[in-house]
């Protein structure tokens, strides 16, 4: 090997890992830093594979993140600034939600342990009863007022 050949071989040996590293995809793993949100209907059915958009408080016009919920209706994001992040989940049938998530509060809270699928809770049963009571109150009140005043105009 000539001197020039030896130098070239040495240069390749030094630079090859760097060149290879330019295309290498690295990763960083952090736990309990992301905020996860699950979208589901009142009866517990999840919005699986629903389209969503996420807006950072730093730029409320251009989505910070776009994608689809997973099979279980979850989406996750890692906030890079504190404040209220806007999440919009859109089902093809026009259902969905549009809400703000407080990144400060979510990051300060301890990670949820063993959280399971949404289930039928007391609120799930009570809320329809509250709704029924409200409708009954409107019509009952109207009848009571009319009966008190007399039905003649």
């Amino acid at each position: 090997m000539t001197r020039a050949g030896a130098l070239l071989a040495a240069a390749i040996a030094v630079l090859a890992p760097v060149a290879a590293g330019a295309h290498e995809v690295l990763h960083e793993l952090e736990r309990d830093r992301a905020i996860s949100l699950r979208a589901y209907f009142a009866d517990g059915e999840v919005l699986a594979y629903a389209q969503y958009e996420l807006y950072s408080p730093a730029d409320p016009k251009i989505p910070y993140q776009k994608g689809r919920t997973d099979r279980s209706g979850w989406l996750s994001f890692v906030p890079d600034v504190p404040g209220k992040w806007r999440v919009k989940v859109v089902d093809q049938t026009g259902h969905g939600l549009d809400l703000e998530v407080d990144a400060d509060a979510a990051l300060a809270a301890p990670p949820a342990q063993g959280r399971s699928a949404p289930a039928f809770t007391t609120a799930f049963v009570l809320r329809p009863l509250v709704g029924l009571a409200a409708i009954a109150a409107v019509f009952g009140g109207l009848v009571a007022v009319y009966r008190r005043k007399g039905t003649r105009p």
Binding site: D43, P128, G131, L132, I135, F139, V143, Y146, K149, P153
Partner: peptide, 27 residues
């Protein structure tokens, strides 16, 4: 439609409204 002349119909209308509310919650 909901003046004093409708007072006799209001219980039925109210019940059907409540029923509509319930069935709209059933997916």
């Amino acid at each position: 439609h909901f003046g004093r002349a409708a007072v006799e119909s209001l219980p039925v209308i109210g019940t059907l409204t409540a029923l509509a509310f319930v069935i709209q919650t059933i997916m």
